[in-house]
């Protein structure tokens, strides 16, 4: 009885979460350029359109470039900071941890507006690279949290053992620490990458008038009428996210990663 109830509840939540996505998939395989559901006919041409149409292809390329670069920059900020906090006794340095977590915790419009005023004041407003920096700062939280977790998972006796065998700080970092935090490095990058790919408001406020990422393109396209391509892009992005998180789950400990993430707040 209770199992049936809980199954039913699970099913209802699953249905609620899946329904918009099912509609997206249905719409994306429509044969004609209408949003019809259930789909009329079957065609994958709307997926092809993402890559053949100049506008969509450029937007996809812009989004992928932005995500790849900003996630890398976020990692470059997070790694030394997380390492320092782990290696040294410096309680005052936790302020930087807090600063790293803040942009992601506050409503995004605040970070977006702060960066907009900053880029406008410094005269760089609209430059594509400002989006990379903006996203890196906005998403630095993610690698920072995964790396802090990764460092705290290192058994200190491994590091001490390396020291007794003659390894100094740099050698220890290269031969022991780096190999051990590699999974966390990868998942931190992946989290930042996927979220940057999907981010709208910060990108819109900083480079919205000069560069078109996919979310911006969809939003702009919404004003001129809906096309099935928007659905196919959504499905594609969902697939990318599912693939990335699936890989993290396959090669890492996702429950543990998420278990500790909420602790950081």
């Amino acid at each position: 009885m209770t199992t049936i109830l809980s199954r039913l509840f699970f099913f209802a939540v699953a249905l609620f979460m899946a329904l918009p996505l099912i509609v997206m998939v249905g719409v994306s395989i429509n044969e004609k350029q209408t949003l019809a559901f259930p789909p009329q006919g079957f065609s994958l041409s709307w997926y092809g359109e993402i890559f053949t149409d100049d506008g969509w292809r450029n937007a996809l390329f812009a989004s992928l470039t932005l995500a790849a670069l900003s996630a890398a920059l976020a990692l470059l900020v997070a790694l030394p900071l997380a390492w320092f906090l782990w290696r040294r006794v410096a309680p005052w340095a936790n302020i930087f941890q807090l600063l790293g977590v803040a942009p992601f915790t506050l409503p995004p419009v605040i970070t977006a507006l702060g960066l907009l005023t900053f880029w406008a004041t410094t005269g760089f407003y609209g430059q594509p690279w400002t989006a990379v920096v903006s996203h890196a700062i906005f998403f630095v939280t993610l690698p920072l949290v995964t790396l802090s977790l990764g460092f705290s998972a290192i058994d200190r006796s491994l590091v001490e053992a390396a020291a007794t065998m003659g390894a100094g700080d740099r050698v220890i970092f290269r031969t022991v620490v780096l190999p051990l935090i590699l999974p966390y490095l990868v998942s931190g990058y992946a989290f930042a990458f996927v979220l940057s790919l999907n981010e709208y408001i910060v990108a819109y406020m900083t480079v919205g008038f000069t560069m078109e990422t996919l979310p911006i393109k969809i939003f702009n396209a919404l004003r001129y009428g809906y096309t099935p391509t928007m659905a196919s892009v959504t499905v594609l992005f969902l697939a990318i996210a599912a693939l990335v998180f699936g890989l993290i789950a396959r090669f890492g400990d996702l429950p543990k990663l998420l278990g500790a993430m909420a602790d950081e707040r």
Binding site: D155, S157, L158, E160, A161, A162, A163, T164, M165, G166, A167, G168, V171, T175, V176, P179, L180
Partner: peptide, 27 residues
């Protein structure tokens, strides 16, 4: 520590999980 030329065995053993037996010994 790293300039003392010691050999130490830790309670947890502290074998490097990312290295093989041979690589551990050769470290």
């Amino acid at each position: 520590t790293h300039k003392r030329n010691l050999g130490m065995v830790f309670q947890s053993l502290a074998l490097f999980p990312h290295l093989t037996v041979g690589e551990n010994i050769a470290y």
